[in-house]
Nucleic acid binder design. Structure first.
Lengths: 334, 334
DNA sequence: TTGTATGCGTTATCAA
DNA sequence: TTGATAACGCATACAA
């Protein structure tokens, strides 16, 4: 059993010694600074020495010296789950690292009474993306004061205090309602999930449905529903009174289709259902499900571009609010 | 429009000045070091000054000074998606932050030819969790040399070079096969997904099915399948030749149920199907789906405990390999 | 009970 | 072309 080699990680000074140059020269070569004029031969020696030692620069030291960490923090909890979010996140990561930033997902729980924003601030990130709910005035102030250039909210509504990436849940409700009414539905229901993480988005989608229903004078029933068959089945009477349901998302839509089938109702004959998310699974249903998909394909690059603008201008107080909106696509497959 | 206040973030020295004490005292108070004896009155003054300034310590500087970052890195790409992974990750985060560590999800793509491990090493994390595939000998060497105490692989098989969290995919295949055979199936098929991210796990699950089939002398057909109806439907002949299918997971199981239904085959009358993952959605199917669930509820705390042991012992070369295995639960709901 | 001094690894300024 | 040298913010051994 070998004794533990308590070897320190190699530093740029170690590299310098091995290459027989000064430590400053190492820094010049490895960052190939434009201004520095170092002979090709020296460069090669430095590079080889770094390789041999397995030299890896110390991010903390660099951040301390330069004042820039290059970190972009995004909070884990505030990203809705599913294939859409995963793909978007990967694209965002790609886009950011192309420009020299590093995307890092970070927990957003408060620990021992310390608000999450404070933990984020310790890393001195250049930008923070987090749920609108967590970015109250105080949190933003902590971040700003720690030198965070860009604070961006993620949510269903624009944040009053920082620029926001808005997922247009109301728009989803609007499209769903119009779709159903255009196809002859005259009595609507809209599901609001009774799950903690989903209720808020559910209410925003509901708001969109409400707007259309009111404008077109169609009665609308709000249905608060946990994701269980029993609860949905218990509402059998309700389902007989309506001819169109916006099910919140595809999962709920599938739940309803199962329950309505059990209750002897035909879909879409007796009741039309619209889901949301365009889940691959939903395409397997018989009959096929009509669904609404958020098109966020353009969001990552647009977001990164705006981030760079904000970082460059570095406005202490944002002069204006700039919500972005993802666009909707209806995918009708019945 | 206010001009940008180019205010530096406040430092502990700023706090010291405002409180009328030395910078060292600030450090003592804010970390309440056991050894330091500071009067309650001074403590209060320091705390108040820190609050007033919105002082947030600089993680990079602290890391540089102490040699410990407290960061635990986990690669984003190597976490399979879905509700199970999300819950596990949250639990892991909770568990780690209780012990003073900070979990951070980090991209695993290589950027401009720089291997991911090098980017991880720059942050000087205390531990790195990543897909077994990314932790080859060289990557581990880079991490070790950068002072990473614990490197842990995530995968379907124990890594030969570092301790591993093993998700027992072979065990899943074994259980599925035994389940089917015990219920009278005499001709099996097992799906291997033809998607890049899934194929490997598919092969491991298949291996388990194969083992059982061979032992019990049951014929087995391997079915490589992309997630499309058409491909599955084209295999109509195959489905008629078997009476039991392990569908890889619940998504594929639902795909098969749709296709088999279209082909006029009864489930489970003509063909039995076993899925995996225990998706809430799968419970809605008629007939209900038999599924296998990995029980990883104990994994986070066990993992963190082992991490601390490894960090404490700090073995330069791991003296032995310690795979963990998640346990299986069959949830039969037909 | 508190202050002084030092060093962590890096980048960047200036002089040689 | 390259090499000293200082400074970033913090924690800590030691002196007062």
């Amino acid at each position: 059993m070998n004794a533990t080699p308590p070897t320190r990680p190699p530093t740029s000074l170690d590299v310098a010694r091995l290459a027989g140059v000064s430590q400053a020269t190492v820094s010049y070569v490895l960052n190939d600074r434009p201004g520095a004029r170092v002979s090709d031969e020296t460069r090669a020696r430095v590079r080889e020495a770094a390789d041999r030692l397995g030299y890896v620069p110390h991010a903390g030291a660099r951040t301390l010296r330069t004042g820039r960490s290059g970190l972009v923090l995004i909070s884990m909890e505030d990203i809705p789950y599913g294939p859409l979010a995963v793909g978007t996140l990967e694209e965002l990561d790609r886009e950011l690292s192309r420009r020299g930033y590093t995307l890092v997902q970070y927990g957003a729980r408060r620990l021992k009474g310390v608000p999450a924003a404070r933990a984020w601030a310790e890393l001195r990130p250049v930008a923070v993306l987090a749920g609108a709910g967590k970015l109250n005035r105080q949190a933003v102030e902590v971040l700003r004061s720690a030198g965070v250039k860009a604070v961006v909210a993620l949510g269903s509504r624009p944040s009053p205090v920082v620029p926001s990436v808005v997922l247009d849940h109301e728009g989803i409700g609007v499209m769903a309602a119009e779709h159903l009414i255009d196809r002859g539905c005259r009595s609507l229901a809209a599901v609001v999930p009774a799950e903690d993480g989903l209720r808020e988005m559910g209410e925003h989608r509901l708001a969109g449905v409400q707007r259309v229903a009111r404008a077109r004078e169609i009665p609308l029933t709000r249905v608060d529903l946990p994701f269980h068959e029993d609860g949905a089945a218990a509402l059998a009477e309700l389902w007989r009174r309506v001819d169109g349901v916006f099910a919140y998302n595809d999962d709920y839509a599938m739940l309803l289709m199962a329950v309505l089938g059990d209750a002897g109702l035909a879909v879409p004959g007796d009741v039309r259902i619209v889901g949301c998310d365009d889940l691959p699974l939903a395409a397997l249903l018989r009959p096929r499900l009509t669904t609404i998909r958020l098109d966020v394909s353009a969001t990552p690059s647009a977001l990164v571009q705006r981030l760079e603008e904000i970082i460059a201008e570095s406005p202490a107080v944002p002069s204006r609010i700039d919500p972005w909106t993802a666009t909707l696509i209806v995918r009708e497959s019945s």
